[in-house]
């Protein structure tokens, strides 16, 4: 049969190109557009070049928010990943308790962010909240609206409560996919419980852990709703993360140029970190060259 040679097949990818253009590229380009211009209203724009980028990168306010974000993501990952693994290991493998566990674990994931924020805002209040009141009754001086440390503990707790089950469910999926023969072989080889975890379970969970770390990093780095609802970025600026700062700048102060430049930088930082995690985790355990 004669083969036809032409480029008509490119029309096949047209729908997806259009979709991506309208859903991602064009909105992103408008942000890029704002970030290199200055506006004083009336739809008048003046070319600003890289000025906003320089301003943001040099600003103290940005640095502080960035450090807060990094610290927050680090703490959240350091708690949620090990905790998720431990919970996944402890979950039952068969019987009716499996479904029960899965449903219970999935519940926090189904609650919208601002509802989670509101729940904890009330829960933590010293006057009427169960947590806040109990803490006070026990003699702890807990007040998330006044003490920065208490505010941080509260926001971290919210995130751990909301998202650890995602990590646990992912790890659980990785664990149940391990064939029984691996455990039997390990038993025959006389492996200890720790060795089974270290040499069978952990390597087999590698893939899902990568996804868990990436998802949790990106999500925690973009955290907005919970601190917005619970602490409003305070007390002071102690829980003002990049996203909160960004909204203040763009909508509160209407500094569209700097806010757009900040969005781009914010986006690039997330991209960079995700790439680092991905590279490190996929290369871990490869042949040493």
């Amino acid at each position: 049969m004669e083969k036809t040679w032409n480029n008509k097949a490119w029309f096949m990818v047209l729908p997806v190109l259009l979709l991506v253009a309208f859903s991602a590229v064009i909105p992103l380009m408008t942000v890029v557009n704002y970030s290199v211009q200055d506006t004083f209203g009336n739809n008048q724009f003046f070319w600003a070049g890289t000025e906003w980028y320089k301003q943001i990168l040099a600003s103290e306010r940005f640095h502080e928010a960035l450090w807060r974000n990094l610290l927050f993501s680090f703490i959240v990952l350091a708690i949620e990943i090990p905790l998720g693994i431990v919970i996944a290991l402890a979950m039952p493998r068969k019987g009716w308790t499996v479904s029960l566990c899965l449903v219970l674990m999935a519940l926090p994931l189904l609650i919208p962010w601002n509802v989670v924020g509101t729940i904890w805002q009330v829960f933590g209040r010293v006057d009427i909240g169960l947590l806040g009141h109990t803490m006070e009754a026990l003699g702890f001086d807990y007040n998330y609206t006044q003490d920065p440390l208490d505010a941080w503990i509260t926001v971290v707790l919210i995130d751990v409560w909301h998202w650890t089950s995602l990590v646990a469910l992912l790890c659980y999926a990785g664990l149940v996919a391990i064939p029984e023969a691996y455990y039997q072989a390990a038993q025959i080889d006389g492996a200890s419980r720790w060795a089974v975890f270290r040499y069978i379970q952990l390597p087999k969970m590698n893939r899902v852990l990568l996804i868990a770390v990436l998802l949790r990093f990106m999500d925690s780095f973009m955290i907005y709703t919970e601190p917005f609802v619970v602490t409003g970025g305070g007390p002071g600026n102690s829980t003002t993360f990049l996203s909160i700062d960004l909204v203040k700048m763009a909508i509160g102060q209407f500094d569209l140029g700097p806010a757009a430049a900040m969005s781009i930088i914010y986006f690039l930082i997330i991209l960079l970190f995700s790439w680092i995690f991905y590279t490190v985790m996929t290369n871990a355990g490869q042949d040493r060259k």
């Binding site: 072989a185 040499y199 390597p203 087999k204």
Partner: peptide
């Protein structure tokens, strides 16, 4: 076993 069991890492 039927399928080779090795310690990947």
């Amino acid at each position: 076993f039927q399928f080779p069991v090795i310690y990947d890492t």
